[in-house]
Computed example of a mutant assay.
Amino acid sequence: MKLCRPLLAACALGLVAQTSSLLAEDNAPPPPPQGEHAKGPRGPMTPEAYIQRIEKAVGPLTTEQKTKITDILADTKKKMESVKPDEGREKFRELMQAQQAAVRAVLTAEQQTKFDAMPRPGPRGKRPE
């Protein structure tokens, strides 16, 4: 009987240690976001994710098209960073429309038709008017 008590205590201690380590894993912070939105679901889309999204809708892009689109996205980002707070949403909307037109111009006629049909980000995929 004297041997059972220490053995039982050791088992109980092991069970408590195992449970606490499992609880610690549950409380671990989530991994950093990756993929389409590096800054969260409402953050900007990465150029790679944007290109993947276009390719999914219009088909494969050439290396030249990908390079031009990446340049267009970088240019738009730079312009958006320079927008003053008082210029507001209207300026952002203008910049996004200009970006869409520039990206569209890079595509072939067949790709443009598919690009025009692809849903746009925003409330329920509606195109901004």
Rank of each mutant, 00 (worst) to 15 (best):
K114L: 13
F92L: 14
Q99D: 05
Q52K: 09
T113Y: 01
E94D: 14
V16K: 08
M1L: 10
A38P: 06
M1W: 10
L107Y: 03
T70N: 00
A12H: 07
P47L: 04
M96P: 03
H37Y: 15
L61R: 02
R53H: 06
Q65A: 09
M118N: 01
Q111A: 09
R53Y: 04
Q100C: 02
R42W: 14
T76C: 09
E55C: 02
A98I: 00
E48P: 00
A24R: 14
G125L: 03
Q100V: 09
A9N: 07
R124L: 11
T108L: 08
G125A: 07
A57E: 03
R5V: 11
G59N: 01
P47S: 07
T67I: 12
E64L: 02
A12T: 01
K84N: 12
D86T: 12
Q97M: 08
T113K: 15
R42C: 15
R93E: 14
A98W: 00
P85M: 09
A101R: 08
T46N: 07
T76K: 05
A10Q: 03
A24S: 12
K39N: 13
V106Q: 10
A105D: 08
S20A: 13
C4K: 10
R93I: 14
G35H: 09
V106K: 01
V103E: 01
T67R: 14
P30A: 15
Q111V: 06
T76H: 04
N27G: 07
E90R: 13
T70L: 04
K39L: 14
C4W: 09
T67V: 10
M96I: 11
K84Y: 02
K2L: 07
Q52G: 07
I72T: 12
G59W: 00
A12R: 08
L22M: 11
E48G: 14
K68N: 01
D116K: 08
E90A: 15
P33E: 12
L3Y: 06
R5I: 13
A102V: 10
L61V: 06
K68L: 03
A24H: 09
K91C: 12
P47Y: 02
D26T: 13
K78S: 13
Q52E: 10
A101P: 01
G125M: 06
E55G: 00
E48S: 08
E55R: 03
E55Y: 02
Y50I: 08
K66S: 02
R53M: 10
V83D: 08
G14T: 01
L95K: 02
